[in-house]
């Protein structure tokens, strides 16, 4: 009978003893993203689609957005599979395909390789999206909110294999556009 007691206790203990810790990869955050507390530099919370109706893309808004993109995203994007999946949705919805195709590039540069004209860090990519770049990358300031921006940034980084394999998206439910992001490796310069 003692073995039965032991069985029951063990079963109960293991079912209940695991901490209710949230696993970061699986969090689904539906409200505003967590405020960053320990980053150097200006706060990402300063990024807002500003009062553009009265000053659409005016010099104030431009200056604000150019100077205040932090280098790192707030926590909760690059380790979060849901956020990266949402980023993939924005990539499709906002027609990034139009210039970048599914990452292979076209009118715009490729996003799946290791060549980054303006930097590969999340802050660089976010800045690119927000303020635009020479030679045709439009500015999306005022068109995305902060959460969408960081989700999209995280997805773009996953396209070149910079995210962990268990966070990056797997294959799309669409025509195949190459290896799923979770199975990509960053391509090194010099490799064709």
């Amino acid at each position: 009978m003692s073995s039965r007691c032991l069985d029951m206790t063990l079963c109960a203990a293991l079912l209940l003893a695991l901490p209710l810790a949230g696993c970061e990869r699986e969090m689904r955050r539906f409200d505003t993203p967590p405020k960053a507390t320990d980053r150097a530099g200006p706060q990402g919370a300063a990024l807002r689609p500003g009062p553009f109706a009265s000053a659409p893309g005016g010099p104030d808004a431009q200056a604000r957005s150019m100077s205040q993109v932090p280098r790192q995203p707030p926590p909760g994007y690059e380790e979060n599979a849901f956020a990266v999946a949402q980023g993939k949705r924005w990539y499709r919805w906002f027609n990034c395909n139009g210039c970048h195709a599914n990452g292979g590039g076209g009118m715009g540069p490729a996003l799946i390789d290791a060549t980054w004209r303006y930097g590969r860090q999340p802050g660089d990519i976010a800045e690119t999206i927000l303020q635009g770049r020479p030679n045709g990358m439009p500015s999306f300031a005022g068109r995305l909110n902060e959460e969408q921006l960081w989700q999209l940034t995280a997805y773009v980084r996953s396209m070149s294999g910079q995210l962990r394999a268990d966070v990056a998206p797997s294959r799309s439910d669409a025509l195949s556009a190459g290896e799923p992001e979770s199975r990509r490796e960053t391509q090194r310069p010099g490799r064709r």
């Binding site: 689904r28 505003t32 807002r48 689609p49 009062p51 109706a53 009265s54 969408q148």
Partner: peptide, 17 residues
């Protein structure tokens, strides 16, 4: 707050806008 998980993003506008 209405449909948690919806793809509609919150939009921040001034009260007048």
């Amino acid at each position: 707050s209405v449909k948690p998980g919806t793809n509609m993003p919150p939009t921040v506008l001034t009260a007048e806008d």
